[in-house]
């Protein structure tokens, strides 16, 4: 596995024909070929959701959405970066929800579109982390926030599901809401509470 591994791959990225050694990601290939790329690059480890791309593979009419940092180049691939600002549509504050009995009602006030889901499945198709996004929205609509949030452990907030939704639901924010209320109202670890209480009483100090 030394120099012989340098097989070259031809592909097109953002309309530029590029020839790069195999074993590069799309972003690395673009840089390798000498093209600048600043926007749309982030953690380069698949957790920030910055490098959304459209990908069309050779001999295929399908176009999928993926993360450019995780995407290994292939012969004949056509790639287009998706760089656009996606502001969330709604605002809410957790401390405005008086108690956990009110969460569901508040949810529907904050995300009125969520109940309008037409079940097209586009959000699930587009998710580069293979999350069952549509199911998550459905669970949240039913008030099953813990379950809804659980589905989104891998969510990197790339916002692809937000632009994919024809009903202007923001599934990723729905999911994050679900996760946040779960922690805010239901995470009450006794080990933490005991420790905080001891510290409040000044029973634990640090001697430098």
């Amino acid at each position: 596995m030394t120099e012989d591994a340098k097989k070259l791959i031809n592909l097109r990225i953002n309309g530029k024909d590029i020839c790069a050694p195999e074993a590069l990601s799309v972003i690395q290939a673009l840089w390798y070929a000498g093209y600048p790329r600043v926007k749309g690059v982030g953690c380069l480890q698949g957790v920030c959701g910055s490098c959304r791309v459209f990908v069309r593979r050779a001999e295929s009419s399908e176009v999928s959405t993926e993360l450019g940092c995780e995407l290994l180049i292939e012969e004949g691939m056509d790639v287009s970066f998706l760089i656009y600002p996606i502001p969330p549509y709604q605002t809410y504050r957790l401390d405005e929800i008086p108690n956990s009995w009110e969460v569901q009602a508040k949810f529907h006030e904050i995300f009125p579109e969520a109940a309008q889901c037409r079940h097209c499945g586009g959000c699930t198709t587009t998710c580069p982390k293979d999350i069952d996004v549509e199911k998550g929205v459905e669970l949240a609509v039913k008030g099953r926030f813990r379950e809804a949030g659980e589905l989104f452990v891998q969510c990197v907030m790339c916002n692809l599901c937000q632009t994919a939704c024809p009903e202007l639901i923001t599934p990723n924010h729905v999911a994050l809401f679900s996760r946040r209320v779960t922690a805010y109202f239901h995470t009450r670890p006794s080990n933490l509470i005991n420790r905080l209480e001891k510290m409040r009483k000044g029973e634990l100090q640090v001697v430098e």
Binding site: L94, G149, L176, R179, R180, V181, T182, A183, Y184, T187, R188, P189, S190, N191, L192, R195, L196, M199, L204, Q205, V206
Partner: peptide
């Protein structure tokens, strides 16, 4: 010394942690 309160603050922002079966 800030540690435990930092965790509480994060939970209040809505951050989840891995918990045991009793919620610890």
């Amino acid at each position: 010394m800030d540690g435990p309160d930092v965790i509480r603050w994060l939970i209040q922002q809505g951050m989840q942690f891995d918990l045991d079966q009793y919620g610890d």
